[in-house]
């Protein structure tokens, strides 16, 4: 659950996959001041294409309350074609089609909502490409 101010500041990353590419090649999806690889502070802003590959995944059967409406669901660690790593829920995909190495594409979906009257949280999820 993210309240409106916490949610709003992450929008460029979650909606448009705005990332930082450091000059040592490391790509960070949330903002960082410094690369964890080489310590360089030089980077350019890039937008990830949203295409990637599953490095690992699991089917979550016991979510926190905020995700109970989509239970059970799959979560994966994905490496994008640019080489960035991120974690995303997998949606619109039969569990048997989710495999390590499967190609995915990120799409815009509703993640959760703050109860009945709070804000709706949107973000990226992945679909396994057929």
């Amino acid at each position: 659950m993210a309240n409106s101010q916490r949610y709003t500041r992450e929008i460029p990353h979650r909606f448009r996959l705005e990332a930082q590419k450091f000059d040592d090649g490391f790509i960070s999806l949330p903002n960082r001041y410094i690369s964890p690889i080489s310590g360089t502070r030089n980077f350019e802003k890039i937008n990830l294409s949203g295409k990637g590959t599953i490095l690992s995944f699991t089917i979550v059967h016991t979510p926190s309350d905020q995700f109970k409406l989509v239970n059970p669901y799959a979560v994966a660690i994905i490496e994008t074609e640019e080489g960035a790593r991120l974690t995303a829920m997998i949606t619109d995909t039969a569990f048997e089609d989710i495999k390590i190495g499967a190609k995915v594409e990120l799409i815009f979906r509703k993640m959760m909502q703050e109860g009945l009257s709070g804000i709706i949280n949107y973000g990226y999820k992945a679909i396994v490409c057929k």
């Binding site: 992450e10 699991t58 979550v60 016991t62 995700f67 979560v75 660690i77 993640m111 973000g123």
Partner: peptide, 19 residues
Amino acid sequence: EYEAYNGVTFPGLYAMMAQ
């Protein structure tokens, strides 16, 4: 913001290592 927001649970994280 970048794991829990996307539905990760702690069993889920270790499960992905196990896979």
